[in-house]
Design a protein around this nucleic acid. Structure first.
Length: 367
DNA sequence: CAAGCGTGGGA
DNA sequence: TTCCCAAGCTT
């Protein structure tokens, strides 16, 4: 690892900030430094691309313009607004933190990274980003960009997926932060990491900090950062039941409040490939899995949906979902975590998996 | 501290 | 198809 002297650090700061002043991106969350705006954007941007986030960010602020507005929201409304962005605990933690600040802290944000980190959903990165950008604290905000940029500049070969990475990079980056512009410094590093110093196809030669880029100078850019491989997703198979009445009402099932797609709504899912199962078998499994009981005599029609399946990839799971469509004569009683709603309901939070299933159903339905 | 937790895009 | 990547946090 390379250590810069004080003069080099000053030159680096001036070069980076000069470039940022001239070429920094004009993003919606950079219109001001309000902690609510900085925090919301940083949470949305976790593992999520800028282009994906922009429309969600704008819709969210139209819905809840202030932290106080958000604190008064229902969790169901928050999840509905978040639906499609993924990592849904982020949305639940946004609401929790809004409530803590509004109700327990009199609307006052902690103004240091250490204080911010006590709040739900705020870890090292978001704490550093909000503290530096909104409150001017000279602390690093170490995200994937910062890991990549400084691994190359300083030839840091610590695996950025290892437990030691946060400590090693924090020690390396902290001395480089300008006391007067920590927020701009951190944002400049992010812009550098998403332009010249990208993961794939970087343009190190034209980077404003090429002269400080040891990996580029030594021709070893492709060896930094060191990052161990992820595991392959595990394959899982399910069968979704489209349970409708003749007038187009369908059974919607809320997932458990913890775990994958927590609290979101889908059509009932049975484990395994149930394309060959009999109707009584399906209803038995439905009762066992979801406590939804229906007399088999009430089933008017039993149809398969399409010849194929819906596939959806999560971080650690690869799902294949088959669809069966059962038409019932009339609605039956449902447990508390299930509802009869129109097949194309618009009121509950649906994960992308459900939107894919609905699209597949609409394309392949038979009547 | 390894594993769980979403999604969309690009090569 | 498969893999990797994108402004991580929690348990």
């Amino acid at each position: 690892m390379i250590q810069w002297d004080a003069a080099t650090i000053k030159q680096f700061q001036d070069t980076l900030l000069g470039w940022y002043d001239a070429h920094g991106r004009a993003l919606p969350w950079r219109r001001d430094h309000a902690p609510y705006h900085v925090w919301l954007s940083e949470v949305m941007l976790q593992q999520t691309g800028v282009q994906t986030v922009i429309p969600y960010y704008e819709r969210w602020l139209a819905h809840w313009p202030t932290l106080t507005d958000l604190a008064a929201a229902d969790e169901a409304a928050v999840l509905k607004e978040w639906a499609g962005l993924g990592y849904y605990s982020r949305a639940r933690n946004l609401l929790k933190t809004a409530q803590i600040i509004t109700q327990e802290r009199g609307g006052q944000w902690p103004t240091t990274a250490a204080g911010l980190k006590q709040l739900p959903g705020i870890g090292d990165y978001v704490a550093g980003a909000v503290a530096s950008i909104a409150f001017g604290e000279p602390v690093p905000a170490i995200d994937g960009n910062a890991y990549r940029v400084f691994a190359r500049l300083l030839l840091i070969d610590t695996d950025i997926r290892s437990g030691a990475a946060q400590r090693v990079f924090r020690a390396a980056i902290t001395p480089l932060i300008p006391q007067d512009r920590p927020g701009d410094f951190n944002q400049a590093v992010m812009d550098l990491g998403s332009s010249y110093m990208t993961a794939k196809h970087p343009d190190s030669a034209h980077s404003p900090v090429a002269a400080f880029d040891a990996a580029y100078q030594q021709g070893v850019t492709d060896q930094y950062p060191v990052k161990s491989a992820k595991k392959k997703p595990v394959a899982k198979t399910y069968t979704a039941l489209v349970l409708t009445t003749p007038d187009g009402q369908a059974v919607w099932q809320q997932r458990p409040s913890r775990g994958l797609l927590a609290s979101l709504w889908t059509w009932p899912l049975l484990t395994g490939d149930q394309r060959a199962a009999t109707v009584p078998e399906l209803l038995t499994q439905l009762a066992a899995a979801h406590a939804i009981t229906m007399a088999s005599a009430a089933v008017l029609r039993d149809q398969s949906v399409g010849a194929g399946s819906v596939t959806h990839v999560f971080t650690h799971q690869h799902w294949t979902v088959y669809l069966r469509h059962l038409t019932l004569a009339a609605p039956t009683a449902l447990p508390a975590n299930a509802r009869w709603l129109p097949l194309a309901q618009q009121t509950l939070a649906e994960p992308t998996l459900q939107r894919k299933m609905a699209a597949y159903y609409n394309k392949n339905k038979t009547d």
